[in-house]
Design a protein around this nucleic acid. Structure first.
Lengths: 195, 195
DNA sequence: GTCTATAGGCAGATAGAC
DNA sequence: GTCTATCTGCCTATAGAC
């Protein structure tokens, strides 16, 4: 695989990830092929195996990059927004943005095909959810402290609920192609957490 | 296909559906094959095509039967339980029961692979969600009337939110193999709707 | 209704030349 | 890094005998 240059090389490996990422989020991991990527990239299937020897390795790289970027986005939210309530709104909007691109959360769609995933990918899907939940739990505690959020019970439990609700809202909204379906789940969720 | 006898013949066609139903709910529609069914049933792949000529027809029959049974369960809930609040609890428990069998809601998992489904199947997935939502919306209105449920806004919107939340709770809970994850989303949902 | 046999396609993957 | 050529395996599906 090509040497990591300072930033934003757009080599073949990176472009493979871009294409595969979109395909996974739209069709699912088992419903796209090396042939799909090759066609779109304008090179042969065989060449792709030079960059990622097998689909399992490609899949792992896909989740890893996705999770990294997601965590970066969470860091930016923490940096840019002052209170827990507005951070939660930004988090919800992160999900809405995925849906606006007519995609599903990568780890949400991988959760659906979890039983057929390579082991390494399974662990990474779980890790993505765990990281989301940890971030949310901290957010909830901050929200209690700064008075912008309100909830009963343990922050970890509420965080689980938020994650599940947003994943489900994406899952169901996408077949309808209707963003308002996402809002129908997200808005009451936000309302129920508002102090 | 065999003539419809009065009830509960368990012919090959029916047993195909039983096996395929479980496989879909665990692996997804594109991740099981006629070979899987044939092995489990002890007959050859070719024989299966006599009952359902193609996978699209099989898939359609799967959703149709699933939705029928689901609607029957909803009728029973309406018949057996007195107030909206207890009916809603029974509805939530219907979903929990699917998860207890280590399965995902069939239409939830099909929603994840929606973009790769045959047209006829797509329409049936949407219909399943619509029927759920209609039933829930009526339930919510009854709950307002009998004083056992409480919510703001339109019943249809809240119904969308409930459906999304439960589907998401199943989706995320299953990789963990942990029913408590489902509860973490379901309990606050019920709490937020309780008068 | 179920069988054998087979077609035809596409999947992921490898060897070796350039 | 990318190519051609090829392999092996699985998939859905069909023809025709029993």
């Amino acid at each position: 695989m090509s040497v990591a240059r300072n930033r934003k090389e757009s080599g073949t490996a990176e472009r493979m990830l871009d294409i595969a990422e979109r395909l996974v989020q739209i069709r699912g991991f088992s419903n796209f092929s090396y042939a799909d990527i090759a066609t779109e990239l304008g090179i042969t299937k065989a060449s792709l195996h030079y960059h990622y020897p097998g689909k399992a390795e490609l899949g792992l790289a896909l989740i890893t990059r996705y999770a990294e970027r997601f965590n970066q986005a969470l860091d930016e939210i923490d940096r840019d927004l002052p209170d827990a309530r507005s951070r939660l709104e930004a988090y919800v909007d992160l999900y809405a943005g995925v849906l606006r691109n007519e995609r599903m959360c990568m780890c949400g769609i991988l959760a659906a095909e979890y039983q057929t995933l390579p082991d390494a990918m399974r662990a990474s899907v779980i890790r993505f959810f765990d990281e989301n939940q940890t971030w949310l739990a901290k957010l909830l505690e901050d929200g209690r402290a700064d008075g912008t959020l309100n909830y009963v019970g343990h922050a970890e439990d509420v965080a689980q609920g938020i994650l599940s609700t947003l994943e489900g809202a994406m899952l169901v909204a996408r077949p309808y192609g209707d963003l308002r379906r996402f809002d129908a789940a997200a808005k009451p969720l936000l309302a129920s957490l508002t102090a």
